[in-house]
Each structure stands twice: as C-alpha cells, then as structure tokens.
C-alpha cells in the first residue's frame, strides 16, 4: 500500500478550505485534505469535532458553505441530477450504527444498490449478496435473516458487505468499531484491510479508536476544532511533536484539548 499520495497523479479526493456550520455553530473551519488513489486515510478526533459532517459533505448529503471538494479532479459541491448519481456511484459507506434497512432481509440489504439502482436480476443479485457475505465471513443462511435478528458484530459485517458489494472506488468508514468488543473490533479491522486491498479502493475512515486507526491507516490526520491540525504517515503518529495528537492518542484528560465538563 502507498504511504503518501502519488506526486505525479491527481489526488482521488481533494478538499480545500471546506467550511460548514449549523446556524451559529461552526463545525468545519477550512479543512484541507488530500487523499491519493488507493490510499487509506484515517481521520481521528474527539467526539463532536465534525468528522461525520466531513464525510457527509464529500458525499453531498450536506452542502458546505465554502471551499472545494474534488473527486478525480472534478468539483462535486452542489452537483445534481445525473452528475450526482454518477458521483454517488463511486462510493460505498459503512455507517456507525450500520444503518441496515430493517424492512428488508439481509441479502436484499447487501445487494441493495445492484437491485434498486442498477436493475440487476433478483437471482443474480442474490448470488452476489451471498458471495459478498462469504467474503466478510458470514454463511449464506444469514442472507435470509432480518437485520434485527443479528448481533451488533454481525450487523457491522453485513453493513461492510453492503458497502463493498457494488465494488466502489471509494469507501468511507464511519467509526467502524464503535460499540464492538475488542476482538470483534479486530475482526472488523482485518476485514476492512482485506476487502480494501482486494478492491484497491481509496478509503477514508473516521474513528477515535486508535487501535483501529493504526491497523487500517496508511496516513493519519487529526481533526480538531474544524481544522486538520496534523497529518502524516502512520509510523509518525507516536512522535508527531504535536501536543494535541499526543494527548489524543494517549487518551489523557489533561492537555491542550479541554473537554467541556462543567466544574462542580
């Protein structure tokens, strides 16, 4: 896997000066981030620093007030209609709470895009779903269950299968290990690394789980108060020389980052 963006190649995803606020609250205050093709970037940062907002801006679910977001060199802020379909077709996303459709059985969840958006035949879509479930270590029998019948870890795996089923060029992982035990977290991390390698996809992961970040990332960036305050190869994370990063990766309450806890 690559350690940095290819210098001779245009970045797959490029954000420049992205601002997003909700009413008075400024969430992103000029985010600059560039991700090379087939690179895996992990964005770390505390809760409520706007990591999810960042992903939703790139997907076009949220619209930033200013700044550019380029995918394959094309500006995608405010795309509509056909262009938006084409834009979204490049993406797969694993949601924090899995976000499986609970009215559909597992296999229809996994093959949702081919079935609904690409007009694939049911039989074919089912085969694809079963194969994809296999690649995340789930048996074909799981395909006929409903999401509510699965444990959290299995739901995550189904969600991962759904994200990769249509072989997207770019995959987003939103806190892939949140709410899982350490062993299941590691299973998911392994699966992510394996699947991404097989697909050769570009990935952007947001997490506050350092074990996960170390496992998945080529490069790590830290988001704090709406800015990327540090970024570098994974191996540099332990001697970044940045007090914010140090505090975060060691999980210390004392340091430059002040959690807003009211004194009693």
């Amino acid at each position: 896997m690559t350690e940095t963006a290819h210098p001779d190649h245009q970045p797959k995803i490029e954000l420049t000066g992205v601002h997003k606020s909700f009413g008075e609250k400024k969430i992103l205050r000029g985010v600059n981030l560039s991700i090379g093709k087939s690179e895996s970037v992990v964005v770390i940062g505390g809760s409520g620093t706007g990591k999810s907002v960042l992903l939703k801006c790139i997907l076009g679910i949220l619209h930033p007030e200013s700044g550019n977001i380029k995918i394959d060199g094309k500006d995608v802020v405010g795309v509509r209609g056909r262009a938006k379909d084409k834009h979204l077709r490049k993406f797969g996303m694993l949601f924090q709470g899995s976000a499986l459709f609970d009215s559909l059985p597992v296999w229809q969840n996994v093959a949702f895009r081919p079935l609904q958006a690409q007009g694939m035949k049911k039989k074919e879509a089912r085969d694809l779903a079963i194969a994809t479930l296999g690649s995340v270590g789930l048996s074909p029998a799981v395909g006929d269950l409903y999401p509510a019948e699965l444990s959290g870890g299995m739901q995550k795996r189904v969600a991962l299968a759904r994200a990769i089923a249509a072989k997207p060029e770019i995959i987003f992982f939103d806190e892939p290990t949140t709410g899982l035990d350490p062993i299941m977290s590691d299973v998911i991390n392994e699966l992510i690394v394996k699947c991404v390698r097989e697909l050769g996809a570009t990935t952007l992961t947001i997490t506050h789980d350092m074990a996960s970040a170390r496992k998945i990332a080529d490069r790590i960036a830290m988001l704090h108060e709406g800015h990327i305050i540090w970024q570098g190869p994974k191996r540099d994370i332990d001697h970044s020389g940045n007090p914010y990063v140090d505090q975060f990766i060691h999980g210390r309450a004392e340091g430059p980052i002040r959690m807003q806890v009211r004194k009693v």
Partner: peptide, 12 residues
C-alpha cells in the same frame, strides 16, 4: 438511524 443517508449512498 441514518438509514435515509444510507439510501443516498446506495445511489437511491
């Protein structure tokens, strides 16, 4: 539960 956002990311 973000299922509506998930629909968008699945080109629907």
């Amino acid at each position: 539960t973000e299922q509506i956002d998930a629909l968008t990311t699945l080109s629907t």
